[in-house]
Write a protein that binds this DNA or RNA. Structure first.
Lengths: 260, 260
DNA sequence: GCAATAGTGTCTCTGAGACACTATGAG
DNA sequence: CTCATAGTGTCTCAGAGACACTATTGC
């Protein structure tokens, strides 16, 4: 119950303007992608992967010239999620990617322009969607930064804090949900999956990764072997001489518990 | 980067008032508690527990007379979290309880008073903190509802949706974090813990709960046996003739993973 | 004895964890 | 032959899952 306007009794005499109201409610979006780079032309080896984040160089006051997260003000006719999706479309030209709200930033003084409450989302975008953009745009104003570089910079507003929080969040999600699929083709080898997980969560080390993922009944549910129309198991030798089983994610959502 | 005010170049000519701005940014709080009721005076048995949520009957337009979540408008000089904490204090008189932000609600038209973006928190409050209040207040205006009853009602605004989301969220948190401790004394028996979990997540059934919690090395870390100054293990026979080992939560935060 | 909670005994089967070993096939 | 990836063999130990059984003690 919003209870400050206590004296108000009906619509006719209600006016929100009696109170100080926010000067804006933007959304800011931490756009993550994983870039891949072949290690040698024609060589069969897994590519090098790197987690990157998209930043924009500000043109205007405040923080003019500094790098910032993409975002923009929400309009009255849209929800915050719609706003984020619109901004994402404007910045990257992509729709239908994983876009998730994770926190609100409202510390007094966080924005010199006034009382501005920012709603932070993260987006997980496959690099194929960003390839066009890179060529199209002036690389001086919009570009991908390796996550380490982005963290070391002083970003505009409280965006360094937001980026840090977003990173913590996707690391947790990478281990507890199937968001890895956002960075993979529909069908992939277990080597690729392991590499994607490690790109986001470097601490994750599992010597017996293949053994566990293929043998554990409880974990098995999230993956299934890819097969062609005749039921033959599909293999790939793109990254190795010995061909590897291809897998795909199922729709199964595992339920985790600390109590067994 | 908030990029709509493109023409603006510095502080002196900047004015957020050029744009339509929100009419308010409140926080709404879903206050959960678990009530306990002894089954018979003097009888040694676990109490009956029930998950409850605190609602407030609205006095003013809009939704006058309907039940709603407690909450209130955020001021310019406070963060959204500060606002929620303040409102919680005003409604329940308690500080230092678990208070967690979980989502923003911004669908156009969600509030007849205008463009109002609500920030939803949930609070987990031990019933001992609410005991005074129940006696003090006019029970007609503020009261606890069993969760089932609250869900069946049509609440003000989109509060039914918010409540539903909050419930999903604490069910997930109950299984994946140690929030159960918010509803328990510092030292408790495993029977009590099991009962609290089941009160929030009725689907949780674990015949061998004690066996698993005491034997699994990986789960063991979250609990430790209570002991007195001399190192003797502390027991309780409050709920049974045979006395039971008391446990407490440790500070250990388990890391969950779907990949092993 | 009964009631209500708090455990333990005993079984089988599966998985975790370690680490060396084999498999593939182009260059 | 090598290299890089993709597995398998084999071992031990721990835990899961089931369910009957014992333990405690006021009434």
């Amino acid at each position: 119950m919003e209870n400050e306007p206590n004296e108000i009794e009906n619509a006719s005499n209600y006016s929100a303007a009696k109170y100080r109201t926010p000067d804006g409610a933007p959304s800011d979006i931490v756009i993550f992608t994983i870039t891949t780079r072949e290690r040698a032309a024609g060589k069969k080896a897994l590519p090098e992967r790197e987690l990157q984040v998209l930043l924009i160089k500000r043109k205007n006051w405040p923080f003019e010239g500094q790098w910032a997260l993409p975002g923009g003000f929400c309009g009255e006719e849209e929800s915050m999620y719609d706003c984020a999706r619109r901004e994402l479309m404007e910045e990257t030209g992509v729709a239908d990617v994983h876009l998730e709200y994770f926190n609100v930033y409202s510390e007094p003084g966080r924005d010199p322009r006034g009382w501005i409450i920012s709603h932070a989302f993260f987006a997980l975008v496959h690099e194929r969607y960003l390839a066009d953009r890179e060529a199209r745009d002036d690389a001086a104003d919009v570009r991908l930064f390796p996550i380490r570089e982005a963290l070391e910079q002083k970003l505009a507003f409280d965006h360094s804090r937001i980026l840090r929080d977003a990173l913590d969040k996707i690391r947790e999600s990478m281990m507890t949900t199937t968001i890895a699929k956002q960075f993979l083709p529909d069908e992939f080898t277990l080597g690729e999956l392991y590499q994607v997980i490690r790109t986001v969560v470097p601490d994750f080390e599992e010597q017996n990764f293949i053994r566990k993922i293929t043998s554990t009944r409880s974990r098995q549910g999230i993956l299934e072997e890819a097969a062609d129309e005749r039921g033959e198991r599909k293999m790939s030798n793109r990254y190795s001489q010995r061909s590897a089983q291809l897998y795909r994610f199922t729709d199964y959502v595992p339920k985790l518990s600390i109590y067994g």
